[in-house]
């Protein structure tokens, strides 16, 4: 137990240190940083305009009201922001493999998967987290809650957001690990973006059974924003909540196994 606590503290310290260095790098290009922050706000506006168009003729879409759907968009922004603010370096995996610079990472006395995830975080994505919280608050104001109920829902929501973060991270690890075989991998970024973008729509839109199964268990899009938003809007559902925790655990450990399996196929390009 003491060993685990020490390890956690060590890794947390490394992560903070990496983020600090990265922030210093970002500050070298201040204008770029602030434009990125503005862009995030712009993206939020476009998402809301899109949702408004969808609801222009219907009061509900796939059983979701407008403000409930806004909760899904807010949750998507929150997850995306957390993901890229902390683990943006995953995007550089294919470059590291192509250039052979992964050698330098593997040789360090720290877990390789940890390093290829947190070496760089896109700090401007924290603006997405803030906008996500803004969007969620906007939706909550328009949904009817008793104060006690809201606090309970929020507490459960945070647990599910943590699970959603783990699932999103794991899906990305799975995807990026493919680069060990293909070497090319720029387009994997687009697949990852496409998957994340889909999470901003309530997963109940996938009305046929095959699509619903695929978006729940194969690529668990449903757990990445819809289910946390559902719990926040409608209250606790122990079946959904326990399934979310289980899926997060399964995806985390299987993606970790897959990453290490893929790593064995790494042929250093620089040596």
């Amino acid at each position: 137990m003491k060993g685990l606590a020490y390890k956690l503290k060590k890794y947390f310290g490394i992560m903070l240190y990496m983020q600090k260095i990265d922030l210093m790098n970002r500050m070298a290009y201040r204008i770029n940083f602030f434009i990125s922050v503005l862009t995030v706000a712009l993206q939020m506006v476009f998402s809301l305009v899109f949702i408004s168009v969808l609801f222009s003729s219907n009061r509900t879409v796939a059983g979701w009201g407008f403000y409930e759907a806004v909760l899904v968009v807010g949750s998507y922004m929150l997850i995306e922001g957390l993901m890229w603010a902390s683990c943006a370096y995953l995007n550089a995996l294919n470059k590291n493999i192509k250039d052979g610079t992964l050698d330098g990472i593997i040789l360090r006395p720290v877990d390789t998967q940890f390093l290829i995830s947190v070496w760089r975080g896109d700090m401007e994505d924290l603006a997405r987290v803030v906008s996500g919280i803004g969007v969620i608050s906007f939706a909550l104001i328009h949904l009817d809650f008793a104060a006690g109920q809201l606090f309970l829902n929020l507490f459960l929501y945070l647990i599910l957001i943590f699970c959603a973060f783990i699932i999103t991270y794991s899906v990305n690890v799975f995807l990026r690990s493919v680069t060990f075989w293909t070497i090319q991998g720029d387009a994997l970024f687009h697949i990852s973006m496409a998957i994340t973008r889909i999470t901003q729509y309530p997963s109940d839109i996938f009305f046929n059974k095959a699509a619903r199964f695929a978006t729940t268990f194969v690529v668990p899009i449903a757990f990445m924003a819809t289910i946390p938003a559902k719990i926040l809007a409608h209250g606790f559902d122990w079946k959904l909540a326990s399934l979310a925790v289980l899926m997060a655990a399964i995806f985390f450990f299987s993606s970790r196994w897959f990453f290490h399996f893929a790593l064995k196929h790494y042929e250093s390009g620089s040596s």
Binding site: A194, D204, I205
Partner: peptide, 19 residues
């Protein structure tokens, strides 16, 4: 992979507009 990613987006939008 690019084709696959655009297909994913297309199918999601297909389902969204279908609903």
């Amino acid at each position: 992979a690019m084709f696959f990613s655009e297909s994913l987006s297309f199918f999601a939008l297909f389902y969204l507009w279908s609903s």
